[in-house]
């Protein structure tokens, strides 16, 4: 059996679903961010897959995936910094502890 585009997309959809479920169900901020990473990487997988199977001669999708990884690395650094800052104030990384913006 050769691996085709449908396999890649299925894997990506699974990863995205797991990530979405985690993001919505977890209370721990670190877990939520890990789930977000799963979703982001599912999208990257999509990009690579489309690039490989739809326009193999143009490397656009692959480059875009690398680019996206760099951005999410920066983003996760920022997110963790925020989590540490919140922990220092609240002594907790539970998302329910942060309710200040309630209108």
């Amino acid at each position: 059996m050769t691996v085709g585009l449908p396999h890649v997309l299925t894997l990506a959809a699974l990863l995205f679903g797991i990530g979405l479920y985690g993001a919505l169900s977890r209370k721990n901020a670190v877990h939520v961010m890990m789930s977000l990473e799963l979703m982001a990487n599912a999208v990257n997988l999509n990009l690579v897959g489309f690039s490989r199977f739809v326009t193999p001669e143009a490397m656009t999708g692959q480059f875009f995936a690398v680019f996206s990884m760099v951005v999410s690395a920066a983003e996760i650094g920022l997110g963790l910094a925020l989590v540490i800052a919140i922990y220092r104030r609240k002594r907790s990384v539970e998302l329910d502890a942060v309710q200040e913006l309630k209108g």
């Binding site: 979405l20 993001a23 919505l24 209370k27 901020a29 939520v32 998302l95 329910d96 942060v98 309710q99 200040e100 913006l101 309630k102 209108g103």
Partner: peptide, 17 residues
């Protein structure tokens, strides 16, 4: 309109999803 702002991160996430 301000009642939309719950302050809960997970409700925002749900809304976005």
């Amino acid at each position: 309109v301000r009642t939309l702002q719950t302050g809960s991160v997970r409700s925002y996430q749900t809304l976005i999803a």
